[in-house]
Design a protein around this nucleic acid. Structure first.
Length: 516
RNA sequence: GGCGCUUUCGUCUAGCGGCUAGGACACAUGCCUCUCACGCAUGGAACACGGGUUCGAUUCCCGUAGGCGCUACCA
């Protein structure tokens, strides 16, 4: 294969949608697999929709996700500028070329006139059937056209489409897609309002000039792909035309239609990689990063939405994704966005993280909840919650607690730092264990522990284990009521050691007095 | 309305003419454990419908229905 060159070319109209992230990811995987280049181009030809900060947001998003570009805005490269608004003169040249060749024409119809036409004529379309009754360089005399231009009349340039031809698009994912040119309208190539090209023109010119070999983009572009093929031909670039691959869309988790920002708000999951502050509305949208997702998890989850390497393995690193990626194995139908599975991916990656990464983050989470503690203490908590210190426990304790995000830890480890202040007598665990002689049992244990002089795990085990042996496992659970206040937490000896003698006895006394 | 794409468990999907239609998420049950949504085991759950082609269709072709997209001087 020739040197692969692909691009991701967003419009800076707001935050980067998660679907766009997946499109960029597929481009990245494809480029890396083939030793090619990924180009980052900004398609800001709609001056009315420009949103300040969006470009920086997009760049930061990809930096966080680990998707690296080889050329483009902020990355440099030999094909710049990579911002379309800075390429006006280039496009102008190519539009003139089409005009001279008679493959495009000038049209003076105003937006108002066109709107009027559309409202009065059913299914009105600016094409072969109507263009000869409109005000354009095809119907007006040459000197009249010149006079209108000279007198400052605004005009657009339209692409002259010859009707009645079956235009074929060879799509890598969908195979041959055919559309008859008669249903295409004479697309505007050059806008009068902002004196910039439309997407279609700029896109084709840039892809050609930037030597793009493969266009991997969303399915919403499939209907205009034939138009793009026609443009390549009109410029005489048919031989070097890129190959197309139109990706299936990401759909709402429920209901109908494609995934939107609203779905995230409604169902409580982020649709943007990073938190986004809309500069116009002031609205804040949550991001995957701020919600506690790991970039690797987001990448893995997204990669498998619309593509699957076959086989049973689902946890795949970026390197593995690069190795296995295959455009021809992309699915053709839209994929519902299953954010619950996204959470599962995050858990899998989170639990792979070494303890050294957990402790500082736990300190931060605790601080957010008003608990000041050292990293050393936090590390002890993490170790206990992972149940690593306990010889009989072989499974991952954190996984057992269904922790998908670091922030899930807080409600689960609160009791390490905050003593129970009341007991819910309706609680199943308390009702089951705190009954009969519970208070007497704990009083006995309280006295037993009071006599322990060296408060460490081995001494505690030496004193407590034999005592508990006599009465089955019930004392453990009764003791748990005292120290935790509910039916969760780590090994009791470990917990007692962590709390210290004074705190342990204090909590027991409180429980005995309160529950009786 | 027109045009295009698409259709396997609730969801993501494997399958590329002959399979008890596989896996994962989610769900349910049981076991284990000093507690816990871990683990282990088990279970329910799908080829949209109708015609062809074929010895044989989930798989190929054609319809129908559903879904999605496009139909701007937006991308």
């Amino acid at each position: 294969m020739d040197k692969v060159r692909v691009r991701f070319a967003p419009s800076p109209t707001g935050a980067l949608h998660i679907g766009g992230v997946r499109t960029a990811l597929y481009n990245y995987l494809f480029a890396r697999q083939n030793g090619g280049k990924l180009i980052f181009r900004i398609e800001d030809t709609d001056s009315t929709r420009f949103v300040p900060g969006a470009e920086e947001y997009i760049i930061e998003s990809f930096r966080w996700l680990g998707i690296k570009f080889d050329e483009g805005v902020s990355f440099g490269g030999p094909h710049g500028p990579y911002r379309q608004s800075e390429r006006r003169e280039i496009y102008k040249e190519y539009v003139d070329q089409l005009l001279k060749a008679g493959k495009a024409y000038i049209a003076f119809d105003t937006p108002e006139e066109l709107e009027a036409k559309r409202s009065t004529t059913p299914n009105f379309q600016y094409d072969a059937s109507t263009r000869m009754s409109m005000r354009n360089s095809l119907t007006l005399a040459a000197d009249e056209v010149q006079r209108l231009i000279d007198s400052g009349h605004l005009y657009v340039v339209r692409f002259l489409i010859q009707p009645g031809e079956d235009v074929h698009v060879d799509d890598i994912i969908r195979g041959d897609v055919t559309i008859n040119s008669s249903i295409l309208d004479d697309k505007v190539l050059w806008k009068s309002a902002d004196q910039l090209p439309t997407y279609h023109l700029a896109n084709i010119v840039d892809d050609h000039l930037m030597e793009i070999t493969h266009v991997i983009r969303g399915e919403e572009w499939l209907p205009s792909a034939p138009l793009h093929v026609l443009l390549y031909r009109a410029f005489g670039w048919a031989d070097s035309m890129p190959r197309f691959a139109h990706l299936p869309l990401l759909l709402k988790p429920d209901g109908k239609g494609k995934l939107s920002k609203r779905d995230g708000d409604r169902l409580g999951f982020p649709v943007f990689p990073l938190e986004w502050h809309d500069p116009k509305s002031g609205e804040v949208s949550s991001g995957y990063r701020e919600s506690g997702y790991l970039p690797e998890a987001v990448i893995n989850f997204l990669a498998l939405l619309g593509w699957n390497p076959g086989g049973d393995q689902e946890i795949l690193s970026m390197e593995q994704l690069i190795e296995k990626f295959d455009l021809t194995k992309c699915s053709k139908s839209g994929a519902r966005f299953d954010y619950v599975k996204g959470q599962w991916f995050n858990r899998e990656y989170l639990l792979q993280k070494p303890d050294s990464e957990w402790a500082p983050q736990l300190v931060a989470i605790l601080a957010q909840n008003g608990i000041q503690t050292s990293e050393e203490r936090a590390a002890q908590v993490v170790a206990m919650m992972k149940m690593k210190v306990i010889e009989y426990q072989t499974n991952d304790g954190l996984k057992k607690r269904n922790v998908s995000f670091i922030s899930d830890l807080w409600p689960l480890c609160r009791f390490f730092f905050v003593a129970p202040t009341s007991f819910n007598r309706e609680d199943k665990f308390i009702r089951k264990n705190w009954n009969g002689d519970a208070a007497a049992l704990m009083s006995e244990m309280h006295d037993l522990l009071s006599s322990v002089t060296t408060w460490d795990i081995s001494h505690l085990k030496a004193v407590i284990d034999p005592w508990v042996e006599n009465s089955g496992c019930r004392p453990w659970n009764v003791w748990r009521v005292c120290l935790v206040g509910e039916g969760q937490g780590p090994d009791m000896n470990e917990l007692a050691q962590f709390l210290g003698k004074e705190e342990t006895l204090r909590r027991m006394k409180f429980a005995i007095d309160t529950l009786k």
